Simulated assay, not measured.
Amino acid sequence: MEHIIQAPQTPFDPAGETAEDETVTATRRAASVTESSRANRGWWNGNADEYQAEHGTFLGDDRFVWGPEGLDEVEAQLLGPAEELAGKDVLEIGAGAAQCSRWLAAQGARPVALDLAHRQLQHALRIAEEHSARFPLVEADASALPFAGSSFDLVCSAYGALPFVADPVRVLREVRRVLRPGGRFVFSVTHPMRWAFPDEPGPEGLSVSGSYFDRTPYVEEDEEGEAVYVEHHRTVGDRVRDVVRAGLRLVDLVEPEWPEWNTQEWGGWSPLRGHLIPGTAIFVCEKDA
């Protein structure tokens, strides 16, 4: 029976969940590493059900989708050709319901799905009951990966962890530590350009509303001023420098174009905006041998 492995430093605390009826206020202010981790763990625990209900069909049970545009790893092969994944040890960071890991398992890889939110991993357990693939589910913070060095051939993250952490270099260094020499790390995030535009899918989202260079985090606060959701902005240059500072080598930067078949809206992502400005940035990195 598949189960969730909890890292000792991040026990599940139901009190940390975001209440559905909680009044929140959006602002831009500083948010520390600890505050960001606590807020986002609570948010994803409290909103996992709604997220999976709204986006589960698009994500599928065993697809590897890099972002709202719908770029599929079957076509992108950013981790390498599918036929070469068999036997590879792969860590997925910010796995959610582990859809990507499930696809990797179907290719013969040996995935480990890690997420900060207990409730997200419970959805992974729910979906697992309908599939034969079995692999470890680990509840832990990406800034402190509970694995020995050089444990994985590949690490991947589709909108997981990196947009929500105050110190992305710490995560990237942890990834480098657990990667084997010659290993690859591929991660997708909101395209930094999007931060200069309103998070709206319609025409109102096409006019610049702020400075691209304003790195002040987006924070949602409760009535006591406690952060309940935090997202951190990094420019394209920041992301590249983060990769280099962590000791990884950037080998590609992919900006998926919006395909004609995709007619859905997902938050501020939409066909209207997707045909004009990039919504996702995918960084392909390697650890030198």
Rank of each mutant, 00 (worst) to 15 (best):
E255S: 07
E75V: 13
Q120L: 13
F12Q: 02
V254R: 03
R38G: 03
V165C: 13
S209D: 14
F185N: 03
A158D: 11
G160L: 11
Q107G: 03
W269P: 01
Q120T: 14
R239Y: 10
G108Q: 12
A7C: 07
F152A: 06
P271L: 03
D167H: 08
F147K: 12
F147A: 09
F197D: 09
A105W: 05
R241H: 13
W103H: 09
G46Y: 00
A117Y: 14
E17Q: 10
M1E: 04
L206V: 03
G70E: 14
V155K: 06
E54N: 14
A142F: 08
D72V: 15
A82T: 05
G16F: 10
L116D: 01
R194S: 06
A95S: 12
F213A: 11
W66I: 00
D49V: 09
L59P: 00
D153M: 09
Q99F: 00
E221K: 04
E265Q: 15
Y229C: 06
G160Y: 13
G160R: 10
A86Q: 09
E204M: 12
A124C: 13
A39M: 01
L172F: 01
H191G: 07
T263C: 14
A48D: 02
A166T: 02
S157R: 11
R126T: 15
A113G: 05
G16S: 09
R119H: 11
H118N: 05
H131P: 00
H3L: 04
D72P: 02
H232I: 10
A39H: 03
R194A: 08
D49E: 15
K287R: 12
H233A: 13
W258M: 04
E84P: 02
E92G: 10
S157V: 12
W269C: 07
R63N: 10
A86H: 05
E83W: 01
Y212L: 10
G279M: 08
L250F: 05
V165I: 15
R234I: 02
T280F: 13
R180N: 00
G67C: 11
E83C: 04
P201I: 02
G182E: 09
E257W: 06
R63P: 00
V208W: 04
E83I: 02
T34C: 00
R239T: 10
Q120P: 06
F58R: 05
A15H: 12
S132T: 06
P11Q: 06
A117W: 13
V138Q: 09
V189W: 07
T27K: 13
L272V: 05
F147L: 10
E260M: 07
H233C: 11
A76Y: 14
F197M: 14
R215P: 06
A227Y: 03
A48E: 04
G16M: 08
E69W: 12
D199N: 14
V155W: 02
C100R: 02
W195N: 14
T57A: 15
A140T: 02
D21H: 07
G237M: 14
T27C: 15
E223T: 09
E226S: 11
S101P: 12
R119G: 00
E75W: 02
